Computed example of a mutant assay.
Amino acid sequence: MVENRPFLNVLAHFVLIVGVALVAFPVYIALIASTHGPYDFMQGIIPLLPGDQAVHNYSTMLSAGMSTSGAPPLETMMFNSLVMALSIALGKIAISIISAFAIVYFRFPGRSLAFWAIFITLMLPVEVRIVPTFKVVADLGMLDSYAGLSIPLIASATATFLFRQVFLTIPDELMEAARIDGAGPMKFFKDILIPLSRTNMAALFVILFIYGWNQYLWPLIVTTKPDYYTVVAGIKRMADVADAEPQWNYIMTTAVLAMLPPVLVVIFMQRLFVKGLVETEK
């Protein structure tokens, strides 16, 4: 039984408040910076109070005439990020759930070896294999394309492992009952396994969407045409200006707008996300 000690309650709330403040402070700085003009940052001092240029900054970044910001139109970058994030999230879920289905429900030589070979790839992130991956993508002519942005990042050992754990919790009697009723492997997969995995798929979708949306290094390498810039890579290119001062008001405005889609995904899918992470019994 946990004792109700006022001091421990105060300490716990203090630690939580400090943690939230540390996480939220950079977001607050970006939000405040997006309300100031370009000359408010010349002295190297970051303002801590809102300015009076918020309407001008946001209207400029949301309009078509954005040549002064040093980046392509914001809607183009946001659309590219959306395509990339959705392709990665849906592709990872589709490939991982099929891989886990094959590993759990099919008996073939080397089944365990196949699973552990997939699992070991967790130790090889894209940053480690970026040179050979870039060479393959370049040889296939996929630079400056949505396929080049998404396909190399689709395979996921983590999602395969999670779906495998979900399938292992499903009773074997359910599979035997489906077999007695005449259901083949694909019908069992489509009519039973997928419905039972919907909450887990939703939780993974949130994680993988944010993972794809926040990709920085890979889009920066495989895109050279502004038409395929993602919003994260676009922010980097906006900050790297030659013979001029970066327009931090536009950069921070873009950063704030870039945070909105992942935040909206988390908000609208919060219940499914939490349920998919904590649900253990089927």
Rank of each mutant, 00 (worst) to 15 (best):
Y250Q: 08
S34D: 10
G44V: 03
R237C: 06
P262H: 07
Y229L: 03
F134K: 07
A33L: 10
L272E: 04
S59H: 03
P26N: 11
P38N: 08
K190P: 01
M269W: 01
V10N: 01
Q247C: 02
M77R: 03
L74S: 05
F101G: 00
F115G: 12
S96P: 03
I151M: 13
S34F: 02
Y228E: 01
A85Y: 00
V55D: 06
F268D: 00
V131L: 07
H13G: 05
I210K: 04
M78L: 15
S150R: 01
G148W: 02
A114F: 15
G184I: 08
I207K: 00
W248T: 12
V128Q: 08
R129F: 08
P171W: 15
M142C: 14
M61F: 09
A100M: 12
P26K: 12
A157W: 15
A54C: 13
G110M: 09
P72T: 12
Q247Y: 09
W116M: 12
I130E: 09
V131P: 14
L257Y: 02
I180D: 05
V27A: 07
V104Y: 11
R164A: 05
A71G: 02
S112A: 04
D172A: 15
Y146K: 12
E176N: 07
R179K: 11
S63Y: 11
Y28I: 11
A233T: 12
F268I: 00
L217F: 15
P73I: 05
I103Y: 01
N249Y: 07
M123Y: 08
S87T: 09
L22P: 04
G51W: 12
A147P: 04
L86E: 06
A85D: 00
L90Q: 06
P195C: 03
I235V: 14
V2I: 09
F189Q: 13
F163E: 00
D240W: 04
M66S: 11
I45A: 05
I180C: 06
A114R: 01
I103R: 01
M78F: 14
S59E: 06
K187A: 13
Q270N: 14
L257Q: 03
F209H: 00
G212F: 00
S99E: 12
M42W: 09
P195S: 07
I207D: 00
A85L: 00
P73G: 09
